[in-house]
């Protein structure tokens, strides 16, 4: 098999567009996954049962099925019952919530892992329950959980590819569109593989810097 990468540059614009969508989806879904992950963890730990049970149920639903199936169900299923949501936001929300469930488990463990002496010291100074959580427990739990949350973000980046099935022109679908014009699959697949590696390396670099900051307080 002869590879001829000269077919790629004419489609640079298409791939770049796909790259930008992939980055945007990763950023938005990671934000949802982190914020909802923390929220779910707090609900699972501290909220009254009426809130805890729905969140437990969401976790059960999401952990039990593949993300791909969830995307089909949410996007096509909702349109079946007359709810037509934009594919982009449906995809971002589904991806974000999927990872929120896993992040919630990480955060829950991290919060429980904070030394009870921290709560005592904070309460003894005169901080209330919420202020204690906000100023002392959550920051420490987040620091401990950062490497694992970061790992999930690395996995999430790759799962953005699944959004191609609901028509989002992220990297994978962009490459497929280019392939359908040129009939040169491997040149394009290898090119976007390289792009994924570059993003990955960038994210790993950020994570390593965060981990080093973490070392200072351990």
């Amino acid at each position: 098999m002869m590879l001829d990468f000269s077919v790629v540059p004419p489609y640079a614009g298409v791939l770049l567009n796909g790259l930008l969508w992939t980055l945007l989806i990763t950023a938005l879904a990671t934000t949802i996954a982190t914020v909802c992950g923390i929220l779910f963890a707090l609900i699972l730990l501290y909220a009254p049962l009426v809130l805890r049970w729905p969140v437990r149920f969401i976790c059960f639903l999401i952990m039990g099925t593949p993300l791909l199936l969830q995307l089909f169900l949410v996007y096509y299923g909702l349109s079946q019952v007359g709810v037509n949501l934009p594919a982009f936001w449906t995809g971002v929300a589904a991806l974000g919530l999927h990872y929120a469930v896993y992040n919630a488990q990480i955060m829950r463990t991290a919060i429980l892992g904070v030394d009870p002496g921290q709560t005592e010291a904070s309460r003894a100074l005169g901080f209330g329950r919420l202020a204690t959580l906000r100023h002392f427990i959550l920051p420490q739990a987040l620091l401990v959980a950062t490497p694992q949350l970061g790992n999930n973000t690395l996995i999430l980046l790759k799962d953005t590819a699944l959004l191609s099935v609901i028509g989002i022109t992220e990297l994978v679908l962009s490459s497929q569109l280019s392939i359908s014009r040129t009939f040169r699959p491997f040149e394009f697949y290898l090119t976007i593989a390289a792009l994924y590696y570059v993003i990955n390396l960038g994210m790993e670099w950020v994570l390593r810097r965060l981990a080093r900051r973490l070392e200072a307080i351990k």
């Binding site: 921290q118 100074l125 920051p139 620091l143």
Partner: peptide, 12 residues
């Protein structure tokens, strides 16, 4: 003011 045996400083 309370001082604990285990210090309980805020490590972050």
């Amino acid at each position: 003011g309370k001082v604990f045996q285990q210090f309980n400083l805020f490590p972050h």
